[in-house]
Amino acid sequence: MGYLFTTIIRVWEMTLQSIGGHLTIGLGGILFLGAPVALWGGAYGYAIAAKAGISLGTSFAIGVALAACAGAIFAFFYARMSNDSFAVITLASVLAVDALIRSWDSVTGGVLGIAGVPRFGFGQTLKNLAIFEMYIAGLALGLEAIFIHSSWGRSLRALKENKIALISMGTSAKFIGQMVLLFASIFIGLSGVFAISRVQFLDPTFGGMVLLVQILTIAIISSAPKTLRLFAVTVIIVLLPEFLRFLNLPVSILGYLRSLIYSLLLIILIFYTLGNTYIKRYV
């Protein structure tokens, strides 16, 4: 049952991260590559506060607030640079924050990380965490669906396609982009708090580039304004490497082989879902 609940919780966590990627990269065309920073903000904020003896509710709020701060900083840069430069800045921020958490031993535990992080959620069991996260992820999906079909959602999609035309209609493209970055960071930070509640151990290998690749893959495949599709793709991406667990592979190469096969599967998935879509539609 532990494996089942863990997998279900991972789907909910990835759902929250996917919403962040979907809003920014998929719908808004904002080249936001700083998702791991928001995730670390949520996870480290919660873990450090909880280990310091602060109540779990307050620690939860601190984690989300730290992720929101990361979002606000990204929003600040977004308003002042081109999309390409923003991509570089956000990617560089991942490397910078990674270096910071690896070297700041007294606060983050450095490469050894933080062990024994208390679990957030009612009853502190995996089952209860899964149920709690289901409500949160469901609420987040519902909010995203409402957002997509509102005037804000249309503006966001317009931002991706023709920023100049959107501005000429009297909409501040910067403001739309900034708000989306803020909310995306909060969703991703929230997933960080949940993820650390699940594993109860946090070190710099948590999240990082693997997470970024997953979010990017989901955002690219589900770039249509459809929340259900986003959720379906998220489930597929989470479950995709799971079948490898049941293959009789040598333990010494299992980890690397899984990463390799998973990467290849992601490439194949993107290739077959998006190949020549634009040409088929318009020519």
């Binding site: 396609e161 023709n162 035309a165 501005i167 000429s168 909409t171």
Partner: peptide, 22 residues
């Protein structure tokens, strides 16, 4: 630009400022 639009400027573009994916 977006505040000038609020002042009353409505702009048409050389390649039609239409959102083609919508």
């Amino acid at each position: 630009a977006h505040k000038r639009a609020a002042l009353g400027v409505a702009r048409g573009f050389q390649h039609a400022g239409i959102f083609r994916e919508m």
